[in-house]
Each structure stands twice: as C-alpha cells, then as structure tokens.
Amino acid sequence: DTLGAVLIMVGVFKLSAIAVQDRFVTLMRFVKVVSVLVVLNTIRAHFIMPLPPLVVAAVNLFGLVTQVAIVAFCVAMRWFCEEAGLSWPAESWKFTTKLFIIIYLFPLGLLQLAGLVAVISGQSSNVNLGPAGLLLLPVFVVPLVHLFVSTSRMKRGAETIVSG
C-alpha cells in the first residue's frame, strides 16, 4: 500500500509540475497535499494499535477527503486535455470521473461517513464484507482501468496532432 501511495504521490507531483492553467494548478495543489497525507496514512496503517476515537474519526474523514481528491484529480486531467485541444480524451476523462464518483466516492464515502457518525455517537463500527469483499475487488479495478484507457487516448491524441 505504501509503495502504491508513493507511486501515486510521485506521479501527482510530476504531473502538477507541467503547469497548464491556474485552476489546474490550484486543484492539483489540493491533490498533492492529499497524496502526501495518503502516504503517511498507509505508514500509520502498518502499525496495528487501538486508536483513540478522535483519531478514528479523523481517519474516516480523511478517507472521504481522499475520495474527493481522486475525483478532483480526474477533473483536473479533463481540463488539461481541453487546454491541449484534445476533445476525445477530455470526454474519456469525464467518463473516468463518473466511474470514480459512482464506484468510489459514493459507496465508500457513505461508508466513511457512517464510520464517522458511529465514532462521534460512541458506537463501534465494523464493516466486514468477508468473501463478498473479494468479489467486489474487480469492480474497484474498473475506474482505474478506465484511467489507463484515458491515458492511452491522450497519448494517441497527442501523437495524431504531432503526425498531423
């Protein structure tokens, strides 16, 4: 997890170095901050220890912020494509954004919100999906695969422009 988070962080920093426009830079700044915090959070998750309720609440809230950051990232990439005059890849990123909202932000966000409410109201919440969780795994891969597809479309779009 930490390795993956570091990869994402480096990728995000490299991307935001390619400054396009003000709103892209602003949105990417938010994504950068979250990506660093995600790395720290995965390191924290290595240590299994009972956490005070306030920290549990903070971790839940942070999870929610992370989902928002992922969506923000996709929107930033759409702007990036629009700025470069790549309309088809921009449409593709729009679809990637929708997938992340439907599959990540909505269900996971609700789960984290429920966790947050549970902590505040002093109950312990434990979501255990069991074997069903494994079946859900391919579903979570879908938006990521589409992210890859969008990237490939960007590449092809750029190549088409270069070759005329």
Binding site: K14, A84, K155, A158
Partner: peptide, 22 residues
C-alpha cells in the same frame, strides 16, 4: 502537445500505484 506527452509517464505511475493500493 509536448505537455501531454510528458504527462503520460506520471499518469501510468498513478495507475500502477492505484492498482497496488486496492
């Protein structure tokens, strides 16, 4: 166009990172 080409590698990194995080 140049900036798009430069964006491909970091995007691929983010994809693999995301895959590792699932």
């Amino acid at each position: 166009v140049d900036s798009v080409t430069r964006a491909i590698t970091p995007l691929r990194m983010i994809f693999w990172g995301g895959l590792l995080c699932i």
